[in-house]
Design a protein around this nucleic acid. Structure first.
Lengths: 143, 143
DNA sequence: TATTGTTATACTCTATAACTATA
DNA sequence: TATAGTTATAGAGTATAACAATA
């Protein structure tokens, strides 16, 4: 088998994925902008809409330094989308949690992500099933 | 047919693509970092490695304001990876062009993008052909 | 007048290091 | 002493507005 890094087919797939990434990124930031959120703020809010988590774990999930999260949560908190709560089990920890308004904004954000509409609409149901299975396998998830 | 924005299959595909985007982004920035480049600098350099283009067109391609490009090209130029040239046809225009060292760095950057290695290696040749065709169709390119 | 690139400004994100309050 | 969160700082990316040179 040819190397996964140099054969023309793999290079083309990587380039196509690069195009998808660029397009997804553009539309994600657009959707965030409609709610006056930056991309980073939207990602944190989406995370917190699922469950309250400690500041440090937000940083781990987003792969950035914990000190950055302070400012991002500050700005989300100033807008009433997020709040900090004490952790009864460890008084050092602060749990960041989405407010009801924050959860609603997260839902709007997801529903407003146009990515699903235009590019995905090019594919039939069968195509989407095939794409889902390929992506699952590629990412090493369960079938 | 169910809405492309709300049916469970499409939502899962969008989520899977989100995971791919996150992973691609992480590895792209890692590859750029190995050359002491930021993501934005790496994207501009990759673009200029193909052909010299006016400052304004870089901004259009990257979907940002032209004023931002000044600083990014400044930093690439300070490292000898890029140079500004006059456009003989229009003295207002400056053409940004990769130097030989810049083109070599762009090649190293592409070859060092590990994305092709790990996730794509999970797929057989036939799988990659199928993925390529689905992505092409999704992005509205020629078969 | 319109366009190209730049400068100036302000905000956000990012990493690093030092600090505080807990553990 | 170790850890969680914060503050302070500096660099980079971003948008906006105003400017000089050229068309």
């Amino acid at each position: 088998m040819a190397s996964t890094r140099t054969d023309p087919l793999s290079l083309e797939v990587v380039e196509l994925i690069g195009t998808v990434v660029s397009r997804y990124h553009t539309e994600y930031d657009l959707a965030a902008g409609r709610h006056s959120l930056t991309g980073a703020q939207a990602r944190v809010l989406t995370l917190l809409a699922m469950a309250p988590i400690p500041m440090r774990r937000i940083a781990q999930t987003l792969k950035c330094e914990p000190s950055n999260i302070t400012g991002i949560v500050d700005r989300l908190e100033a807008r009433g989308l997020v709040e900090r709560r004490p952790d009864p089990a460890d008084r050092r920890v602060k749990l960041a949690a989405a407010t009801e308004e924050g959860r609603q904004t997260a839902r709007d954000l997801r529903d407003g992500l146009d990515f699903a509409r235009e590019p995905l609409a090019q594919l039939s149901h069968e195509d989407r099933v095939a794409l889902r299975d390929l992506l699952r396998r590629m990412l090493g998830e369960q079938p």
